[in-house]
Each structure stands twice: as structure tokens, then as C-alpha cells.
């Protein structure tokens, strides 16, 4: 892990932050309100600092500020860039994170992240999982729950098989639990805690 630091290179942010953050928020709102739908964030995303994908970097640039501690599985240049653009604290404690980013193949256990409390279930982590592919790939997930009329099928590449079992436990702990956004390049798909996940 590079030092969270001083001499790390700073990646570029949005050219037009007002428009870009509004558009990316709406895409994310769409993805989380309609689990299973693959949403394209569009062309022209800024180049992402290592180890983030363009999609994750754009979502974080859109939503973070001084109120949102960020946890990164691997800090790299990303921590310095996001601290510079958003002013967000970077935390090493998963339980403190409002937003977190981890690779879909090697993420910490979901229960390590903030789950919210019975009184305030909203105080939980939103976890961006970087996967290899969306709409293709090895895992075929069948999703049910709010936002889905009957059921939806989502193909994911590069998601740890053990994580799918954790997603089911996460759903069972509703209304507490983490909310997940799968990110593959500039494509995203939402898996909020309301979604029931099965492997086909």
C-alpha cells in the first residue's frame, strides 16, 4: 500500500462537476432502484487513478465529501486523488466507511462493513465491488425484490462465489445491511439489501 500521501500523483477530476455528478447520481439511482439492470455511465469519464475503474472513480467523485469516510481495499493513487477532489477522509477501518471499494474477487466479509443500527439502518456502508464483467461472465444471478417486477437475471464475471452466500445473509438482515454496486469499467448494476440473490 502506498502512503496516503503527499507525493502521490493526483488524477484529474470532472471538467464540469455540476453536470457530471448529477448525471452519475441519476445513473446510480436508476441502478439501485432497478436491481439487475445494467446502467452505462457513458463516455467521457475521467481517467481513473490506480486501482479504481473509471466507473468507480466517477461515482466516488460524484458523491463523496467531508462527511463520507472512504475505505479502499488498496489505496494507490486513488486515495490522494479523492481526498484532493472531494475532501473525504480515508479510513482504514471498514466499519467506519460510508463508501468502500473492493475487488469483487477478494472483498472482505460484508459483515465487516457498517450495517446500520435497528433505529438507523441508513447508517451503513455503500460498497462498490469491482468486477470483470457485467452482462457476461461466469456467474448467473437471479434477483427478486423491490425494483424488479418478477425476477431479473444478471450475469457477472469475477465475483467471488463465497460472496453470493454473503449477499443472501445481507438480505436476510434487512432492514440493516450494506448496499452493493457492481462496477465493470463504465457499467454498473445495483444490489441493494432488499434484493434476494440466487445462483442459477
Amino acid at each position: 500500500m502506498a502512503a496516503l500521501g503527499t507525493d502521490a500523483a493526483i488524477a484529474e477530476g470532472f471538467a464540469d462537476p455540476v453536470t457530471a455528478s448529477q448525471e452519475h447520481f441519476r445513473h446510480l439511482l436508476d441502478a439501485l432502484s432497478r436491481p439487475g439492470r445494467i446502467v452505462e455511465l457513458g463516455a467521457g469519464l475521467p481517467a481513473a487513478p490506480a486501482p479504481l475503474s473509471r466507473g468507480s472513480y466517477a461515482l466516488l467523485l460524484s458523491l463523496l465529501d467531508y462527511e463520507t469516510p472512504l475505505w479502499l481495499a488498496e489505496a494507490g493513487e486513488a486515495a490522494a486523488s479523492l481526498r484532493f477532489h472531494c475532501g473525504c477522509p480515508v479510513t482504514e477501518c471498514t466499519g467506519d466507511a460510508v463508501f468502500a471499494v473492493a475487488p469483487g474477487g477478494a472483498a472482505p466479509a460484508l459483515e465487516e462493513f457498517a450495517q446500520g443500527t435497528p433505529d438507523y439502518p441508513d447508517r451503513s456502508t455503500t460498497l462498490l465491488l469491482e468486477v470483470e464483467a457485467l452482462g457476461e461472465g461466469g456467474q448467473e444471478l437471479v434477483l427478486r425484490g423491490p425494483g424488479i417486477e418478477e425476477s431479473a437475471v444478471l450475469r457477472v464475471g469475477g465475483l467471488d462465489a463465497g460472496l453470493v452466500g454473503q449477499l443472501r445473509a445481507n438480505h436476510r438482515s434487512f432492514p440493516q445491511g450494506v448496499d452493493i454496486v457492481l462496477v465493470a469499467g463504465s457499467r454498473i448494476a445495483g444490489l441493494p439489501r432488499t434484493t434476494e440473490v440466487e445462483i442459477r
Binding site: 455540476v18 462527511e67 455503500t126
Partner: peptide, 26 residues
Amino acid sequence: NFAYLDEQTKRMIRRALLKAVAIPGY
């Protein structure tokens, strides 16, 4: 600013909206 509110306020509201969608009715 575009749509009156400043950007930090919008971000705070947007994050609340995302959690609201994830916990319907809460």
C-alpha cells in the same frame, strides 16, 4: 448554482435518497 442548491447540499441529499431507495418506506 444550477437548481439553486450548492453542490455539497445536493450530495448530502443524493446520498440520503440512495439509502431511502435501499430501505423502502424508512
